[in-house]
Amino acid sequence: MSDTKKKSIKDILNFREAGVLIALIILCAVIGIMNPVFFNARNIIKILRQFSAIGIIAVGGGFVIITGGIDLSVGSFMGFGAVGIAKLISMGVPPIVALIMILAIAGMCGLVSGVIIVKVDLNPFIVTLAMMNIMSGVTYLLSNGIPIAFNNYLNFLGREFMTIPVSIFVMIIIMIIGHIVLSKTEYGRQVYAVGGNAMSARLSGINVDKVKCSVYAMTAVLAALSGVITCANLNSGDVSTGSGYELNVIAACAIGGCSLSGGEGSILGVFIGAAILGVIKNGFVLLMIPASWQTITIGIVIILACTLDRIKHLRSEG
């Protein structure tokens, strides 16, 4: 009896994400002790809302990284989502139709990235870098750089429901779906297999090209959705929405234990990674530390997290 109990405690401490989770808890504890406001329900909700934009995209980003790829275009897709939907609605398209159109267009463009990556066999870094430029150009063309007002029933996406921002619900729902798909479906196993060894995956009857294309399309859709939510929150579609987010998304995935060489990672890890970024940002504001220290700290955290992961890896390999 006590033996099984002991084992379960050990198992809990041994799961892959334990390291970053403990880091997150320590981080919260330190900030909370220095400024108890941190633990206020309002503040916690604020943190969640702040990182929900990154969190939603990072689910897709995690899939991409686990297949051994990378997506630099998510920030631009986010901007495209924000400006695109505002523009369509301003042209008289019904909001719900506009939403579907924007997500579909983003999905198609993400699919184009994927198809180029698999069929022309180009490096995903290059292809998504190109797509990042193309999408931000398109976004600028749509708006001429001027924010477009956004006032319609879709604004509820940026509002609160039972005092909790809707974006948090969206993030949690997407995280849960992502987690189930990745860990409990055949498609999820295929994602890991493709990232682990694409050649073996193909010889095992997996349509490697299809899996790779799908993750880029999915990520583009999630990025555009995140852009729409931001737009709804700000009441306007702004070109600058999402700029720089691609690196935050990659950082969240890396901190959360996704191996950039593919085959490893989890949505739980990605969530914790995004949470760590959110907590650092919020904590530094509460502790009134200058913003420049935020980015320095985030840089250090990325290196620490990956180093710890690496050490754990080496140990288990012996």
């Binding site: 060894n197 010889l203 593919g262």
Partner: peptide, 9 residues
């Protein structure tokens, strides 16, 4: 190694 196992799984 190249075509059989998926080493990290």
């Amino acid at each position: 190694k190249q075509k059989g196992i998926i080493a990290c799984l």
